[in-house]
């Protein structure tokens, strides 16, 4: 499949830069996650770190503003993180794929006509539930129901906040 009809070399270079930025952020987020986990337990760890792991999608989509960029931003970021490598290793690819698809849905919902702060927030928020589901499925991070709800909310809120930050950062630069 060639994306050439939709993406110029400049778009793809932007995508590469976003993947590198996201890869660096994703790799550093492991330290934040472990620190948060040690200080405040699973919910605090998710609030302060999960949104950073979802940031590739809103960054790429707000910058390039084309269909498919949210997915590619998140997935390529995860691929770069795998090659660095980090604690998550190949699992990053599985997470990147699922989170990228979920984030892409946020832009699809608006028929790819709007790439603002709201859409970026939603893109971050949408990546939360699949990430929590994968934690449970892959790592057996299954807690009592009320804790699971709080963890999902923490991931969604964190995703929304960092999604908005990513969009604001891109908009500031592009002014």
């Amino acid at each position: 499949m060639s994306l050439g009809r939709r993406f110029t070399a400049l778009d793809l270079t932007y995508l590469g830069v976003v993947a590198a930025v996201a890869g660096v952020i994703f790799a550093l987020t492991w330290n934040i996650y472990f620190l948060g986990s040690a200080i405040g337990g699973p919910i605090v760890a998710r609030v302060i770190s999960y949104g950073l792991w979802f940031i590739g999608a809103p960054l790429a989509a707000t910058l390039i503003r084309k269909p498919g960029t949210a997915f590619l931003g998140e997935f390529l970021g995860a691929l770069v993180e795998t090659l660095i490598p980090t604690y998550g290793a190949f699992t990053n690819l599985i997470y990147g794929f699922a989170q990228g698809l979920a984030s892409e849905a946020a832009y699809m919902l608006f028929r790819y006509k709007k790439f603002g702060v709201l859409q970026a927030s939603l893109a971050g928020a949408f990546a939360g539930p699949p990430c929590v589901a994968l934690d449970a499925l892959l790592f057996g991070d299954i807690y009592p129901a009320e804790v699971m709800v709080l963890i999902t909310i923490a991931a969604v809120v964190s995703g929304a906040v960092y999604g908005a930050i990513a969009a604001i950062a891109v908009k500031t630069i592009r002014k």
């Binding site: 993406f7 070399a9 590469g16 993947a19």
Partner: peptide, 9 residues
């Protein structure tokens, strides 16, 4: 395209 973006990254 993906290979190029990844190489740049």
């Amino acid at each position: 395209d993906i290979a190029y973006a990844l190489a740049v990254g």
